[in-house]
Simulated scan of single mutants.
Amino acid sequence: MRLLFDARYIRTDFHDGISRYSAELAAAVAAVAPERGVQVVYLISDERQRAFLPPGAAVLPIHAPTSWREPFTALRLNRHRPDVVFSPMQTMGSLGRRFRLILTLHDMIYYRHRTPPRELPAPIRLGWRLFHLSYLPQRIALNAADVVATVSETSKRQFAAVRLTKRPVVVIHNAPQRLAALLQTGSVVVPGTQNLVYMGSFMPYKNVETLVRAMASLPGRTLHLLSRISPARRADLEALAPDGTDVVFHSGVTDEQYAALLADRAVLVSASLDEGYGLPLAEALALGVPAVVTDMPIFREVAGDGARYAPGTDPDAFAAAVRSLDDPAEYARTVAAGTAHIARFSWARSAGILLDTVAGLAR
Rank of each mutant, 00 (worst) to 15 (best):
R125K: 13
F99E: 06
I102G: 04
F131A: 04
L142T: 12
T154K: 00
L142M: 11
L101E: 04
L105P: 01
P137A: 06
G96V: 03
E153K: 07
R139F: 13
L126I: 13
T154Q: 00
H113L: 05
T154Y: 00
V151T: 15
T104V: 06
R118L: 11
H113N: 12
R118W: 03
R97G: 14
G96Y: 07
N143V: 13
A144R: 15
S155Q: 05
L103Q: 03
R114N: 09
A149F: 13
T150F: 08
Y135L: 15
R100W: 10
R97S: 13
L103P: 02
L126W: 12
R139D: 10
H132T: 08
D107Q: 03
P117V: 00
R100F: 11
G127V: 00
E119W: 14
A160R: 15
T115K: 10
D146S: 12
T154F: 00
T104W: 02
K156P: 00
R97F: 13
L133C: 10
I124E: 08
G96F: 11
H113R: 07
H132F: 15
V162L: 08
K156M: 03
Y110G: 00
I140S: 14
D146N: 11
A149C: 05
N143E: 08
V162F: 05
L105T: 04
S152I: 01
R125D: 01
R100V: 13
Y111W: 08
S134F: 13
I124S: 09
L103D: 03
V147P: 12
R157N: 09
L105W: 08
V148L: 06
V151G: 15
A144F: 01
L136M: 14
V147S: 12
A161F: 05
L101C: 10
P116L: 10
V147Q: 13
L142W: 01
W128Y: 12
Y110W: 05
P116E: 11
R98G: 01
G96R: 12
P137T: 06
I102R: 05
L133T: 11
K156H: 09
V151E: 15
F131G: 03
L105K: 05
Q138M: 15
L136I: 13
P137Q: 04
I102Q: 06
M108K: 06
P137S: 09
F159W: 09
P123N: 06
L101Q: 05
M108E: 07
I109Q: 05
L95M: 07
L133R: 15
D146E: 12
D146M: 05
N143P: 10
S152E: 04
P123C: 11
A149E: 08
Q158A: 15
F131H: 08
A160M: 11
P137D: 09
R125G: 02
T115I: 14
V147F: 14
Q158P: 02
T115Y: 08
